Amino acid sequence: MKMNKKLKLAFCLFKYFPFGGLQGDFMGIAKECMDRGHKVVAYTISWEGKKPEGLEVRLLPVSGMTNHARYKSFAQLVHEYVKGESYDVLVGFNKMTGLDVYYAADVSYAAKMMERSRLHRYTPRYRTLMALERAVFDKGSKTEILLLTEKEKNFYMDYYGTTAERFHLMPPGISRAFLPPVNADKIGDEKREELLIGREKTVLLMVCTNFKIKGVARAIRAVSALPPEILRESVLLVVGKDNPRHYSHLAKQLKVLEQVRFIGTRSDVPQLLMAADFFIHPASVENTGTVIIEALAANVPVLTTDICGYSFHVTCAQGGQVVRDPFNQEELNQALSFMLTSDQRNVWQANCKKYIEHTDIFSRSQKVADFIEKVTL
């Protein structure tokens, strides 16, 4: 039930650009809040793309030559700019001080740094990013935390002393556009024709905005290890915003340049999934992996790594294969080869369909808006 009181909300995000996972969540939640009649003001360092009607965007004049210095400056400026604005709730989509609500899409920086050399702990970057994370999770903080997965909850509680009652688990939130319509096969065929990919080809789809951490090199190596007769009929289609030069060079070195295509950012990902046979997401860092849920919703079998927070959905759905941590390239190679040569594809597809029909994967924006309203009561 929606509340009668109209709220004034400040949403804080380091950077907005189309097609980013966090940015998509930000936009979905902002639109849901505005649909409920609330005023949303977005504070950010930079904004790319269209601004939806009703959303006020304020670019803050940050200082600093490095990203971490600019993030620190942004966190300080936010509090200067919100003074006297009478906001009901200050919502952060990145870690910073003084938030009422933090949308926890990022992995823990402290946990990530524990795997690195101790020398990193003496850098300004480490000190800055740790301070921003501690501001949210420290036991003395009053920030309410919206978790997207349970993956790092225990770490935060052990490392920072965060109390359990400050964590609130949110469901996934994807568009129903990813559900295949009755004419999905026709749409998929048309998309293949547009991309000049024959129906006889096996299409492996990747969708990501950071090729390094989302595993594009891992995927290329796995493709190069396919049996020759399978490799000849396979295409790795990489969608996303990043520089493909290094990865094209790797594909050329491994003699699979003809099998790997980079097609940039796209607004037709649901249709691309209808054209795909498999979805691959072998990330090395991934708090959630919304694209995994999108592929399952499209009934496309998934190959991923269990470092991804949403990989458990693939296991629960029995909708593909999950490579266990610590990562081993040979295991990924074998898993990909198994999926492309197995007769289980139809079974995986049916399992995906059944799982999605009985799992809440759509309501995140609504549940986050519900919580934002609740904290004002």
Results as ranks from 00 to 15, higher is better:
residue 361 I to A: 06
residue 116 R to M: 09
residue 201 K to N: 06
residue 78 V to Q: 03
residue 135 A to H: 08
residue 25 D to T: 14
residue 172 P to I: 08
residue 107 V to L: 06
residue 33 C to Y: 13
residue 151 K to I: 13
residue 130 M to K: 08
residue 100 D to Q: 01
residue 321 Q to L: 13
residue 275 A to P: 09
residue 44 T to M: 02
residue 289 G to M: 04
residue 66 T to V: 06
residue 56 E to V: 04
residue 54 G to C: 09
residue 340 L to R: 09
residue 9 L to E: 03
residue 257 L to E: 14
residue 315 T to Y: 02
residue 236 L to E: 01
residue 355 Y to F: 14
residue 320 G to P: 00
residue 175 S to W: 04
residue 68 H to W: 15
residue 177 A to Q: 09
residue 244 P to S: 05
residue 195 L to C: 07
residue 350 A to V: 02
residue 213 I to F: 03
residue 243 N to F: 07
residue 202 T to L: 13
residue 165 E to D: 14
residue 292 I to Q: 06
residue 244 P to T: 08
residue 159 Y to I: 04
residue 276 A to S: 15
residue 200 E to P: 00
residue 19 F to C: 04
residue 74 F to I: 08
residue 40 V to P: 03
residue 202 T to Q: 06
residue 39 K to L: 10
residue 78 V to N: 10
residue 16 Y to A: 00
residue 314 V to Y: 05
residue 21 G to M: 03
residue 154 N to W: 05
residue 240 G to W: 14
residue 184 A to P: 03
residue 194 E to A: 10
residue 194 E to F: 13
residue 212 K to H: 11
residue 88 D to W: 12
residue 15 K to Y: 07
residue 285 V to C: 08
residue 83 K to R: 14
residue 218 R to K: 09
residue 226 L to A: 02
residue 339 M to W: 02
residue 110 A to L: 12
residue 138 D to T: 05
residue 78 V to C: 08
residue 225 A to P: 00
residue 265 T to E: 11
residue 32 E to V: 03
residue 353 K to L: 03
residue 122 Y to N: 12
residue 155 F to W: 15
residue 5 K to F: 04
residue 220 I to Q: 02
residue 197 I to G: 00
residue 327 F to L: 09
residue 105 A to G: 15
residue 353 K to F: 04
residue 90 L to D: 05
residue 296 L to D: 03
residue 244 P to A: 05
residue 18 P to R: 09
residue 277 D to F: 13
residue 7 L to H: 01
residue 6 K to H: 10
residue 107 V to M: 13
residue 255 K to D: 02
residue 330 E to M: 09
residue 313 H to A: 04
residue 203 V to F: 01
residue 213 I to P: 00
residue 20 G to S: 04
residue 192 R to I: 14
residue 27 M to Y: 04
residue 342 S to R: 08
residue 267 S to F: 12
residue 15 K to R: 14
residue 253 Q to G: 00
residue 302 V to A: 06
residue 206 M to A: 12
residue 46 S to C: 10
residue 92 G to L: 08
residue 169 L to G: 11
residue 33 C to Q: 15
residue 58 R to V: 15
residue 328 N to Q: 13
residue 165 E to A: 08
residue 79 H to W: 11
residue 339 M to C: 03
residue 191 K to D: 03
residue 350 A to H: 07
residue 50 K to S: 05
residue 231 L to F: 02
residue 365 S to L: 06
residue 360 D to L: 08
residue 157 M to L: 14
residue 34 M to P: 06
residue 154 N to A: 14
residue 270 P to R: 10
residue 147 L to D: 04
residue 232 R to N: 12
residue 345 R to D: 07
